[in-house]
Structures are given as structure tokens and as C-alpha cells.
Design a protein around this nucleic acid. Sequence first.
DNA 1: CGTGTGATTGACGCCTGTCAACGTCTGTGG
DNA 2: CCACAGACGTTGACAGGCGTCAATCACACG
Lengths: 228, 228
Amino acid sequence: MPSCDDCFNKIDSIFGSLTKDEQEKLLFEKSCKIYKKGEIIYHENSRPSGFYCVNKGIVKLYKTGIEGKEQIVFFAKRGDIIGYRSVLSNENSCTTAKVIDDAVICFVPSYLLKNLVKQNNNFTIEIMQMACRELGKANAYIADIAQKTVKERLAEVLYNLHKDFGETDDGYLNIPLTREDIANIVGTATESVIRLMSELKNEKVIELKGRKIKILKKGDLKKIGGVY
Amino acid sequence: MPSCDDCFNKIDSIFGSLTKDEQEKLLFEKSCKIYKKGEIIYHENSRPSGFYCVNKGIVKLYKTGIEGKEQIVFFAKRGDIIGYRSVLSNENSCTTAKVIDDAVICFVPSYLLKNLVKQNNNFTIEIMQMACRELGKANAYIADIAQKTVKERLAEVLYNLHKDFGETDDGYLNIPLTREDIANIVGTATESVIRLMSELKNEKVIELKGRKIKILKKGDLKKIGGVY
DNA sequence: CGTGTGATTGACGCCTGTCAACGTCTGTGG
DNA sequence: CCACAGACGTTGACAGGCGTCAATCACACG
């Protein structure tokens, strides 16, 4: 079971603003759990009982729409906090969180988060800033999805995934996604993703080997995706 | 020039969490200005110099996308705060704010907002909660726009506009929008909005009189729009 | 070696965006 | 008060992007 110290000491961690005492309390109150791929951490529309910090692995956050089709809004990885939004806004969860790569995840109960927010203004400021940044990204994605073609969005998504998750030793995108997952980020049909990725392959922008994706020309992806 | 007391005393105002002293200081430092329809309050990608509180009128917030096409992400009305996001996340503005109905708007400089946030934890909590709620809405809209048809989104938008802005004495939607504006909320072409609104008219769900829109069957709109 | 999940490909057609032309309204200036 | 210009609304024609359905292939796992 890995320690939380790494998370605390990360430069951009929100926990950095906690006092020693508060960190102690957090360590004492939190619980840690190992999740297997496919496990669900919390469900959409449920009352949140706390928030989660990803220590290891990858979690996808998605909303379930028409006829069960998922819309993925975020992938959380090491150091990311999930589920805090609904705790703090006193709403039900607006997404479901599902593990897509075996994970170790810490749980912090609601009351503790609420207490910390009440006690430590610096901590509140960190969270507020995090929410503000996420809000900026969400607005940007609304404009994207409304205006760009599927191919442009696909290119943008691949570019961003590469930026966020990097590549494995052999150069493939370091996040295990099905074609359906990708379609659910882009907001399109699985078949469309397959066809357009095939186009990108013919254009020598990416390379495909089974499920694995290798980015060959990052610059071209950026250009096609209209990323600035 | 209307007073800010109304804003302060509104039950759900974020300013309610300020102390008397802080409210005094805010009143002293803020400036107020009348804006005509069409005026721009701040531009996308600019460094924010403060935030704004809408006392009267309506402001549309939009991102400019491909070939200048706007994507509207929010309409701010009496009591709403705009521009705070970029001040607090230390980023450039992610939207442009343009007046669409003659407005009276107060301006509060950045340093004051930042000071208040540093000093008053309750105030910070209010802002954090506001950001969290907006984030929830933004995520919901991403799923909508990715999955629903244009007609469904149009119905949903009309339903929400009615909920947020109500109707005039003669029963028309109480917000002055062009067809193009509506298209830029829904994320589609102006002509599509016109055709689909015409359909809704034939289905007796709405009534059109020039630019004005009357909602006849709110329940039907809700159902068509898949709003729950 | 069967079974199941995921990837791929093809066929098909509708939804929706684009272009173009025309009608309508509004406000401004004479 | 009227005329005109410009903005906005409406309609039609058209094409193509993209979703849906169905069949087949590839691969992993018990």
C-alpha cells in the first residue's frame, strides 16, 4: 500500500496547503482501497459520502445519457481528486466513476472535507481554483464539441491524451482505452472513431497496432485538432 | 443608479457572507456603469482586471470558435457574477461578455476580490460552491450537446430560457434573442433553428410572432428536450 | 477449442450544415 | 411622416458527414 506522502508533497497538490495537524488528521481518517479494472467507485445521481484521491491507476468519469451511452468528461490519474464537486455543492454526483486501469484510491469522508474547508482558508482557495480551472476547460470543451467536426475532435482528444498520459516504452499511448471509450470522449459513434483513426493512419499521423495507438506526428494532430 | 443593497441582501447572494466592514469597502471601491445593448464588457483571452456584478439587464457570455462563430455558454442577469473565474484561477478570460439588453453593471477590481477571498473564508466557500455548481451544469451540457439531436437541444434550451427568464406580460419569452443567438446556444446553424422552431410551432408547442417566442406547452418541451 | 468481447468494414440514408435568394422588420435621416 | 438601408428571418435546394444496422474478423481467456 503506497503512502500518501507523495501526494501531499506534490508541488501542485491541494493538500500542500494543509497544516501538519490537518495532514495528520487526514491520514488518520482516510481509508485506502485497491480497485480492479471495471469496478465502480461511485454512481451518478447518488449522494456522495466523500471524495477520492487517485494514488495509482486511471479512473474515467462519465455521465450516462440517452439509451445508456456514456459521455466521458474526465480521466483521473495519480494525484487527481474526484467527487469533491458534489460534496461541496451539496448536490448528487453528476458522474459515475469507473476504474479502467487497476487503481489504488484513498477515500476521505464528506464531513472531514467540509471541516477542512471551514477551517483552512488556504485549502478552500486551492479547491476553488481547481474548480475554476476545470470550469474553464469544460466551457472550452462545450465550444469544441459544438463547432468542430468529429475528425477535429478526435485529433484533439488524441493529442490531449498523449499530453496527459504520455507513452509506454514502446511508444504507444499510455492509457488503456477501447474504441468505444474514445467514441465516448469525442461524442460520436464507435464506428466513426474507427474509420477516422484509419484515415489518420493512412495520413501517417498515427499508427495502429490492435488496440494500441502510436502518435507519429504530434504537430499534425495539433493542427488537425485546431489546438492552440 | 440603483443601489447594491438589493444584491447584498438577496438570500442566495455570495455577498451575504461578507461582514459589514467588507460590504462597506466593496461599496466604496466598486464602480458602476450603464451599458447599451451591443457593448462588450470584456474580451476573451484578455487579462481580467476584475469581476462584474449584473444589477440590471442581460449579458451573454460566449467563446469565439471556428470562423468567428460564437458558442454561448451563459446568460447573466440581475444578481449574477461574471468574470470571477479567470480572476481567481489566474488565467485569461475564457469568454467574451456582451450586453444584449441594456444593463447596469458594477465592477470590482481584482485585488479586492482576491483580498476578500484571502480574508473571509465564508466568502471563499460561497464562491467555491458557485464554481462547483457551474461545473456540474457545464458537464451536463457537454453530455447533452454530444448526445442529443438538434431538436432535443433546442427544446431543452427554450425550456431553460423560460425557466430562467420567464415571460413578459403578453406571455412571450422575456429575453431578446436573435435566431442566430439561439443557434449559438444550441450549437447549430441559424437555419436549423428556424426550421425546427417552425416544426415546434406546427406541433402547437410554441407560438412565433416575429422575433418573439411564446411557450404553449411547457411539459411537451420538457419531454422533447429530455429534461428531468 | 469454443466463447465472448472488441475491432473493422460495408451499405444505407437521414440529419444537418451550407449556399443562395427572397421576405420582413426596424430604425435613422431627410 | 416617408423612404431607404441594413439587419434579421424564412424558405428551398443540395450534398455530405455521420449515425445505424449488420456481417465478419481478430484476439484473449477459460
